[in-house]
Amino acid sequence: MLDPVTGEVFDGLENATQGISREALRLANLRERRLDQFVRSNSDVIEIDAQGAPARRGELLLMDADAAQIAAAETQGFSVIGREEIEGLGLYVTRLQVPKGTDLAQGQKQLAEILPGAEISADNLHFSSGMGAALPAMVQGSAAAITTPIGMIDGGVAGHVNVTAQKGFASGAPAPSRHGSSVAYLLHYADASNIRVADVYGAERAGGNALAIAKALGWLVDSGTRVINISLVGPRNSLVERAVAHAQEKGAVIVAAVGNDGPAAPPAYPASYDGVVAVTAVDGRNRALIEAGRALHLDYAAPGADIYARGMDGKAFKLRGTSFASPLVAVRIAASLERGARWRNSVDREALDLGKKGPDAVYGRGLLCGGCRPSR
C-alpha cells in the first residue's frame, strides 16, 4: 500500500491507519493556515468570531428581536445597522454593529450576556468545497429531462450553462464563477432542466455569509424549488440553521457537501444540520476521497473526482471535491420526487452499497449516480 503522505510502500493495517492519521492531521493544519491567511488578507471586512470561525467584521445577527432587546443592546453600545426579513421563510433578523473598540468575538459574548436566551450569531462565511485544474474540452452530457425545480446556493453561473433563473444576494451578484458554473454544469449533465441559481458571492469579499444564504433559501423556497444543493461549508450558525429548518418545513430537500478539509476537520455545515442530506465523494475507482470532510451524519456518496466540467470560461477542467458529488445526489432526489415516489426509499434502492455492508461512516447509505461521470 502507498503512504499518501510520504509515498513509501508499507504493509499492515496499523501502518495504513497511521498513514491516514498523518494525512488527516496534514489536512487539518492546511485548513488552519488557509483560514488564517484568508482572514489576514481581508482583515478590513472579515474577522474571527467567538467560535473561531471567519465572519463579516463587526456585525452580529439577532433573530426575531423585540424593541426591548434592541433597546437593551443599544444602551451597551451596540447600534442597529438594519433589519432584514427573510422572505419566503418568515424570519426576521436585526443586524447589529459591535461597540467601537470591541472585536467581534468579545461583542458576541457581551451581547449574549446582555440578552440571555436570545438567538445571536456572527454573519459567518461559507466556502466552496471543490477544486479543479484546466484541461481540454469535453463532450456535452446527456439531454436534460428532469423538470422538478432544483436550486443551488453558490457562486454565479456562466451563460454556457442553461439555467431557469439566477438571482444575486451579494454585491455585484449574479456574476459568473468557476465553482458555481461547474456545479450547475453537473446538475445539467445529470439531466436537470429547471435550475435556479442563488449567487451568494458576487464580487463581495465577505460573500457566502449567513445572511445571504438565508435569503437565498427563502427565495428558492418561495419560488417553489423542491431540492436545493449547497456545495458550501462553514461553521454552525443559528440563522442558517433556522433558515434550513423553515425551508424543510415548507417541503424543500436540502443537499450539502461534507467539504474537503479531511476527517480531522470540524463537522461541516450545512451538511450537519438535522435532515440535510450529507454527501461525500468517490474517485473513478469508487474509492472515498482521502480529503473528504465529515458531518454529524452521512447519507450518500457520489462521483467527485476523475470527472470533468466546464468553468465560467466554457473550457473543460478536471474536478475533485465533495462539491461536485452533492449536485449529482440532488438530481437523483429530484428524479424520485418527479416520479411521485417517496424519495428516500426510491434513492436507497438506487444506492450501490460500498464498504461495510449497510450504512457506514465512509460511504453513507451507498453510491448514487455512479454512471454520472462526465468525461473529456
Score class of each variant (00 low, 15 high):
Val5Thr: 11
Phe10Pro: 01
Asn29Gln: 08
Leu30Gly: 08
Leu35Ile: 14
Val39Ala: 05
Ile48Gly: 06
Gly52Ala: 07
Ala53Thr: 08
Pro54Gln: 04
Arg57Asn: 02
Asp64Ile: 11
Thr75Asn: 12
Glu84Met: 13
Glu84Trp: 12
Gly90Phe: 03
Tyr92Asp: 14
Thr102Pro: 03
Asp103Tyr: 06
Leu104Ala: 03
Leu111Glu: 11
Ile114Cys: 08
Ala122Asp: 06
Ser129Ala: 13
Met131Cys: 01
Met138Lys: 03
Gln140Thr: 04
Thr147Ser: 08
Gln166Phe: 01
Pro174Ala: 01
Ser181Ala: 13
Tyr185Leu: 10
Tyr185Gly: 13
Glu204Lys: 01
Leu217Ile: 09
Leu217Val: 08
Trp219His: 14
Leu220Lys: 10
Arg226Trp: 03
Ile228Gly: 00
Asn229Phe: 01
Ile230Gln: 12
Val258Gly: 03
Gly259Leu: 10
Pro270Thr: 09
Val276Leu: 09
Val277Tyr: 01
Ala278Ile: 01
Ala278Phe: 01
Ala281Gly: 02
Arg287Met: 03
Glu291Asn: 13
Ala292Ser: 13
Arg294Cys: 02
Leu296Cys: 01
Asp299Ala: 03
Gly314His: 08
Arg320His: 14
Ala330Thr: 00
Ala334Gln: 00
Gly355Leu: 13
Lys356Phe: 04
Tyr363Gly: 03
Tyr363Arg: 08
